[in-house]
């Protein structure tokens, strides 16, 4: 079922991208074009096939549970748009 304008609005909110009302139809058209095209995968028989997870099968590496860095708040916040001291600042979240 093709995506409607409302669907696109919902997806845009999930993606946290503001899409202007007048662009919704055009974007619905583009997304439907791409989704219609990828849906050809439905014709592939994948009954008991395992989804691919890695190229070389290897156990997830573990490292020692030790502190390896820290005390670099100035570096961490160096690119923050609006820091206050060693903190990130955001619009008021709690009313």
């Amino acid at each position: 079922m093709p995506l409607s304008k409302d669907d696109v609005q919902k997806i845009a909110f999930l993606a946290r991208i503001r899409v202007p009302e007048e662009r919704l139809d055009a974007i619905a058209g583009e997304l439907n074009g791409i989704i219609g095209w990828v849906e050809q995968l439905a014709e592939v028989e994948t009954g008991d096939v395992e989804p691919m997870t890695s190229v070389v099968a290897m156990p997830a590496p573990l490292r020692d549970d030790v502190v390896t860095d820290g005390a670099i708040a100035d570096k961490v916040t160096a690119n923050a748009p609006d820091p206050i001291g060693p903190f990130y600042a955001v619009p008021k979240v709690v009313e």
């Binding site: 995968l41 439905a42 592939v44 994948t46 096939v49 395992e50 989804p51 691919m52 997870t53 190229v55």
Partner: peptide
């Protein structure tokens, strides 16, 4: 979509 694609990816591999 995603799981299906990862399965087809296994077949391609």
């Amino acid at each position: 979509y995603y799981v299906k694609a990862q399965k087809v990816r296994s077949l391609i591999f």
